[in-house]
Amino acid sequence: MRKAKEMKPDLIFMDIVMPGVNGYQATRMLINDPETSLIPIIMVTTKGQETTGFWGLRQGAVDYLVKPVSAQALVEKAQAALAT
């Protein structure tokens, strides 16, 4: 959260499993914060957890990727997210 506020990145790839807060919580916090609410977030899930992408979208993420991520999918989703 602190880094997102400091850096104001163009795009965030959000992992689900992280130390401290998980990816859903972090996404909700970023979306609800006026300073970071416009940063597009792409959830990154592992295979077999595709439903977590759906839940990520419910938290406000613009899209999700399933690992292992292909270069083509990465670029396409990043391009689409950066257009928002």
Partner: peptide, 24 residues
């Protein structure tokens, strides 16, 4: 969480229409 800033001034938005540079 992977933020996009890395100490460079390159904006990802500026690379949106250049997929190879964006990937790099």
């Amino acid at each position: 969480m992977t933020s996009t800033a890395s100490g460079t001034d390159t904006s990802l938005r500026s690379l949106r229409d250049r997929p190879f540079e964006l990937l790099k």
